[in-house]
Structures are given as structure tokens and as C-alpha cells.
Design a protein around this nucleic acid. Structure first.
Lengths: 157, 157
DNA sequence: TATTGTTATACTCTATAACTATA
DNA sequence: TATAGTTATAGAGTATAACAATA
């Protein structure tokens, strides 16, 4: 049975019928799409603990570096000092993080997790670990090693 | 020669001294960092033709799909119709793209490259090809294949 | 003079509701 | 009713300049 003109037009209008091979052959394009996809899925999952990915990263950094200051966090995550202020302030208002003014250098404010922050971080780590295992299951052990290696080299470009 | 207190403090304050291994072990984190790095470098290079990556992608899609409409572009690139309007309008104002109202369905506007748009696209393709070759040189042929495969699987998650 | 952290501000990107004109 | 495209608007994320407090 031949397609009528209307069906033909509908198929032609399908996103699937759009020729995208020139874009899909670009690593930069694929990397952006994959990153966006992963980021959105992680945002969804972390909503269970009311944390955004950047907030999770900050809690991990504080937990791994007791007394770390905002400049160090900004340097590590690539966030400028002005843009960090609001994020940290929100974590403090939620009583997940506390500030302590340094006695050696009174410009510096050392950051620590509160008991509640540490508790929430454990919960968040469970979510993130499960999330990472989902990726691993999709790409395999070998793919994982190769992907890590490639991403490291790209960051050194 | 032992470090004095001041040098010691400076080293401790270094971004390099911040313990980040828990984050760096996360694929999602590495993927985000690599994507950001690549995106910034591409933005820099495409400034030579006054195009942003998304504008380049749109020109490629139009060139590969003469008469494509905005909904199709939005579906392909994951951009909502309202957010596409401004981008397309800018390309039209720059005389790189022209609109043609469909005679079959007067809601639809078919998009085409102008001669100037086609010329600029050729120039941009040169930049992008060189950029991709730089990535390839950094990660190698095998890394390239493995990376593509992994990124495709991640997008299907 | 330089550094930590802050305020203010602007610009891009993204998301949603509501509209128009067409079908 | 549904679709293509638009307007208006709000929210993130990111960038820079200028400042206070401290070293």
C-alpha cells in the first residue's frame, strides 16, 4: 500500500528523517549531547536529597578537605568567587555546612560539614554510586577505562 | 632546606593540594569537565567566523536538509521553539539564512542557506575539522572509536 | 600591594505559559 | 483540535568590576 501525500509529508517532517550525520560524526557534538543527558538524569536523581550536582560536589570536597575555604573550592570546581557565594550561603542556611573564621588569617573562612550535612552526603553518595554503576553497566569495564583515559586527555588539551 | 611556615601555608592553599579523588573517580564529573573544556576551546576558535557552536550546528543542519523548518531543527538539537527564534532571527539578520513560507502549509517556514551562509559554513567547517583533528591527535584512533561508542551508549541511557 | 570574600550587575542558556495563524 | 512559530517572562549558570577586611 503506497503512502498518501499526507503520510509522506508527516514522515519527512519527523525528526528522525533529518540528516544529522555531519554533526553526529563530531566528537565535540557527541560529548555535549552525552554530558547533557547524564547531567539531566543526575539532577533528577539528586532531587531525592534536594541537592544539585554542584552542591553534591561541594559537600564531597568539604568532607575530603576539612576546613577548606571558598577560594579552594572555586579553584577546584572552576567556579568564580562571586558565583560561589550564593551556593555556599544556601548550604549554610540549610545547616549542611558551617563556616569558621580562621584565627591565623582572619580573611579566610574554613568550611566544615554539620552532622546533618554529613548524613545527607552519605545518602547522596548512595544515589551517585548507583548512578555511576548504571553508566558502567551501559558501557562496560573496558569502555569505562577507555572513556576515563580519553576524557583526561581531552581536559589536558 | 625546610619550608618556612609561609611557604607551607601557600602550598596547602594550592588548588593542587585539595583532595579531589572522590570527584575525579566519577565519570559524570570527568565528562562534564571535558565537555566544558572542549566547548570553550571551540567557542574561541569559532569566533574567527563570528559563530557560536549552536549556530554552526544549525548551518550544518540547513545545508544537509534544504528547506528544513524550525521545529525539525529544535527536535534535532534539543532546543525549544521559543529559544530557537532568537538564534534563527540573528542568522537571518546576518544574511546567512533565508526563510521561505511553505505553499503547501502556510504555517511552515522552510530555511535555506544564502550564498554568504554557504561560504561562511565552508570556512567554519575548516575550523571545526581542524579542531576535531586536535582531539583525535590527543586521544588516538582507538581512543576515538571507544569514546564514540561510549558516548552513544550514554545517550541511550 | 595582594588576597579572601562580598555585592552588584549583566549576559547567556534554558524552561514555560499564552498567543497567532494556519491546518 | 492540533501544529508551526512567536512573544513574554522567569530561572539557572556564568562573567566582570568594584568594594571591605585583612595580610
Amino acid at each position: 500500500m503506497p503512502m498518501d501525500a499526507e503520510t509522506q509529508a508527516a514522515v519527512q517532517d519527523d525528526a528522525g528523517s533529518v540528516e544529522q550525520s555531519r554533526l553526529q560524526g563530531l566528537l565535540g557534538y557527541q560529548l555535549t549531547r552525552a554530558q547533557l543527558q547524564l547531567h539531566r538524569r543526575l539532577v533528577e536523581r539528586l532531587q531525592a536529597v534536594s541537592l544539585r550536582p554542584v552542591e553534591y560536589s561541594i559537600l564531597v570536597l568539604i568532607d575530603s578537605n576539612h576546613g577548606i575555604n571558598q577560594r579552594q573550592i572555586g579553584d577546584a570546581l572552576g567556579i568564580s568567587p562571586p558565583n560561589l557565594v550564593g551556593v555556599i550561603t544556601r548550604l549554610i542556611k540549610r545547616r549542611l555546612v558551617r563556616r569558621a573564621r580562621s584565627r591565623q588569617d582572619r580573611r579566610v573562612q574554613h568550611l566544615h560539614l554539620t552532622a546533618e550535612g554529613a548524613r545527607l552526603l552519605v545518602e547522596a553518595e548512595g544515589i551517585v554510586t548507583e548512578f555511576e554503576q548504571g553508566i558502567l553497566a551501559a558501557i562496560g569495564d573496558v569502555g569505562h577505562d577507555q572513556l576515563e583515559r580519553a576524557l583526561r586527555r581531552i581536559q589536558q588539551l
